Amino acid sequence: MGQVRPGAVVGTLAVAVLAVGCTGDGEPAPPVERAVSTGGGAVLSGSEVAQRYGYDPAAEDLTPVYALVPEFHSLDDGYARDLLGSACLDGVVVYRAVAPRAQAGSVDQRTGQLVFDVEIAAERGYPFLRPDAGEPEALGGVPAEVEISTEIYEQMVACGRQADQRLGTAPERLLNEIETGGWDRVGHDPRVAAAVDAWRACMAPVGVVDLPQDINEMPTPSVLGGLVRDPMAGDPDLPLSERERAVAVADATCRDDVGYAEVVHVVRAEAELEMIGRSIEAFDAVREEYRAYQAGLEQVIVELG
């Protein structure tokens, strides 16, 4: 892994409709304050939580909320809702339910993180600047050429409500708060700040005149020939210059050399473990709720997939 960012998986508009219903200056990192109330129950330390579940941050690719709750942000959720939507909209409008891919373009569909390494950089520069739309037949939802009338839209909303009634709501609130708390820690931990400083030193010979303090602000306008990019938008027609390619390769190489992604992962994992320990009974309850929720998704997929 190279570039790592928080963020939810981005779905199609149709899917969204159907789903309606210590610091860098050396000071110690502040505690994570987003922990959910324990309700007076047991409180465990982060190390005790890791031992309880057999979780080793250095050996795991995923942070605790994803590794310990495999059903969290399961791709089966959107697929099951699409299957229900497709059946509900039969005779109203074509709605394709397509089995999800674990990775679409440069985005891990479950965690919402961008995937960026030397090989990707050499081939595509900064790939998130040019999202891959994919082949039309691989895209779910209503075909792009279909005009959605008011009547169709209202029926889509109604079908979304029916899906909600069938599947319920994912018990994700606690896990979302824990995941966010892990990302919050990244912005304050001296180990991350040190990794960014090492990355900047590694990048110095590349000659990026506006090299940012925040590693996630790459690529900068100078790399893109003066263009100011919107990190939330992409342009599949944006040309890939040799300058961007060269900088992207150097960027990915330096991130690997300083172990940036690994440091971020460990910091997030430690923070998540602390938060889980302060809400351990609620966390165990959510794990059980997610198992039941996942069973409902799998039942729909067996019936309609």
Rank of each mutant, 00 (worst) to 15 (best):
V196R: 01
V196N: 01
D197Q: 11
P205D: 12
P205C: 14
P205I: 13
V206N: 08
V206I: 09
V206M: 11
V209F: 14
I215A: 06
N216G: 11
E217Y: 07
E217Q: 15
E217A: 14
M218C: 05
P219H: 12
P219T: 15
T220V: 14
P221D: 15
P221I: 14
L224F: 14
G225N: 08
G225K: 08
L227Y: 09
L227S: 01
V228S: 10
V228R: 13
D230R: 04
M232K: 06
G234M: 07
G234C: 09
D235M: 12
D235Y: 07
P239E: 13
P239F: 12
L240Y: 04
A246W: 08
V247F: 12
V249M: 03
V249W: 09
A250T: 03
A250N: 03
D251R: 04
D251H: 07
C254I: 01
R255C: 06
R255F: 09
R255I: 03
D257R: 12
V258M: 03
V264S: 04
H265P: 02
H265L: 10
V266K: 00
V266E: 06
V267H: 00
R268E: 06
R268L: 14
E270L: 13
E270C: 15
E270G: 14
A271M: 11
A271R: 13
E272F: 15
L273D: 00
E274A: 13
E274V: 15
E274T: 15
I276R: 04
I276V: 08
G277S: 09
S279M: 07
E281R: 05
A282D: 09
F283A: 03
A285G: 11
V286C: 10
R287W: 15
E288R: 14
E289V: 01
